[in-house]
Amino acid sequence: MAQGYSIWIGLAVIVALCVASWFLSPKGENQVLWRSSLMLAIISCYLMWLITFLAQLHPLIAPRRSDLREAYLE
């Protein structure tokens, strides 16, 4: 489902969204505002998701805890 290549899928999605927001922004005085804000927001969100995903892609440490109940364990 979410493998390492997901970041490229995500990239494709946000590129599509950015293109869409470039062309679908309402015309007029505030078009530049719409375009800049939408694209910046989309890219910022993608960036944050990307960083979080990459940080967990090849984790160097594993979660460790000692308060688990038996039923929870596989």
């Binding site: 489902m1 979410a2 493998q3 390492g4 997901s6 998701w49 979080t52 995903f53 967990q56 892609l57 979660p63």
Partner: peptide, 9 residues
């Protein structure tokens, strides 16, 4: 190779 897809696991 499955990773938590959205945010922190």
């Amino acid at each position: 190779g499955y990773r938590y897809p959205f945010g922190m696991d």
